[in-house]
Amino acid sequence: MSTPVLELRGLGRTYGKGETRVESLIGIDLTVAAGELLAVMGPSGSGKSTLLMLAGGLDAPTTGQVLVEGTEITGLSRRRQAALRRRSVGYVFQDLNLIPALTAVENAALPLELDGTSVRKARATALAALAEIGIEGLADRFPDEMSGGQQQRVAIARALVGERRLVLADEPTGALDSVTGEAVLRVLRARCDAGAAAVLVTHEARHAAWADRVVFLRDGRLVDDTGRQSEAESLLAKDVRG
């Protein structure tokens, strides 16, 4: 089997000390292969965002390891970690984080520009990402000139821009209506079918169902898992037309 795009080994994260100590994640083992979309569900406070932050190298684990394409990211220098994040990892934060002084297309182009791509090329690539998500018409708007759902889609475009191997999305459909939310899932699914790996945190089972596998977190532990499904297991497909 080829190296998974993301591998979490015995991952744990504890915040605080003594009275205020919180075990946010405990002993998480997970792998996400190329082409795979993994959904993470669980109640508020169960550790979903913590998991994504660790997977993206935005926070360091208390115990365990994070491997991105076989490389342990905690062992990398800060500079190399940052380069990895810009090049291979796309991140949609739960709280958007668009830069107010930049337009939609400039926000989406930012990771590429930071990585040394020419402004023109970065802009063209960012426009393509905006188009993929259906908002090319908003390219020159500033964040405060867009609705919450539109800003959310810009943040998604920014995470998808260029050739990301790993997309980490924390509630990317939270502010979207059901049809727009589904359009975003279709794009994520297509990216995975084209070979990327993605982890999607969502409260909505309807969106989690686009994943190959759904895991449930509770109090920092993985408590349940739908497993990877083979087509043959599909209950419905058998007796449906075609």
């Binding site: 089972a205 309807r206 989690a208 169902a209 686009w210 994943a211 759904v214 739908t226 499904q229 297991e233 599909s234 209950l235 419905l236 497909a237 449906v240």
Partner: peptide
């Protein structure tokens, strides 16, 4: 139920 939901989504 989630697996059923995945089936419907695939369809």
């Amino acid at each position: 139920t989630l697996r059923m939901l995945q089936d419907y989504t695939r369809l």
